[in-house]
Amino acid sequence: MDNLLYISIGVIAVAFVILVYYLIKTIFAMKKTQENIMDTVLNIKGQVNEVAKESKDLIHKSNHLLEDFKRKSESLDSVFIAAKDLGDSLQQMNRSVKVLSNTVSQKANQQSEQVAQAIQWGSAAIDLWAKWKDKKDKTKKTDDQTDTK
């Protein structure tokens, strides 16, 4: 029975040594995994810091560009206002020219009627004068012929 006790203690000791061996192996594997995780976390932390810095720079540049765009668009406002005023002035001038053109056209039509009447009266006056002159010349010729006879 003593032998059995020694064998049992021997088996327990061997089992304990095997258990400790696998526990040590597992602990070393966990340590290696933990180191890999730690390296990965540090790498990710560095990348996140880099991305955060680049994002911050990008936001700063975007804000700067936005302010520059705002400033430039405000400076262009006066150009657009001037262009609008110029357009309004040209439109008003076009209306004035149209009214003036209509007025001139109406006056020209009225005066052309008056000129046509004046030409007709002048033509009639010239015809009357020509007839009067012919009549006068005929009467003078007849008087001259009667005098010479």
Results as ranks from 00 to 15, higher is better:
T148W: 03
S112R: 09
H60K: 06
A15R: 09
K138W: 03
Q47D: 15
N109F: 09
L76Q: 12
D39K: 13
K131D: 07
S78Y: 05
K53V: 06
Q117F: 00
W132S: 08
Q117Y: 01
S75H: 06
K53Q: 12
E50Y: 00
Q114S: 11
K98C: 02
V17D: 02
S78G: 04
V79R: 11
E54Y: 13
K72F: 01
Q110T: 06
K138A: 14
K25L: 11
L100Q: 06
A83S: 09
D88A: 07
T26M: 11
K53H: 06
V17L: 15
I81W: 08
A83W: 06
Q111V: 09
D143K: 15
V14H: 03
K135S: 00
E113P: 01
Q91A: 05
N43S: 13
A82G: 06
W129G: 04
I9P: 01
L128W: 08
L76E: 11
Y21I: 10
A125M: 05
I18V: 15
W129V: 10
T142M: 15
Q114R: 14
A130E: 13
V48E: 05
V115W: 01
N49C: 02
I37Q: 09
T148R: 05
D85P: 02
I59K: 11
D85L: 10
M1P: 00
S123M: 06
K70H: 07
T142P: 03
T148C: 10
I119F: 04
R95A: 05
K136R: 02
N63H: 06
A83F: 12
Q117P: 00
V99A: 05
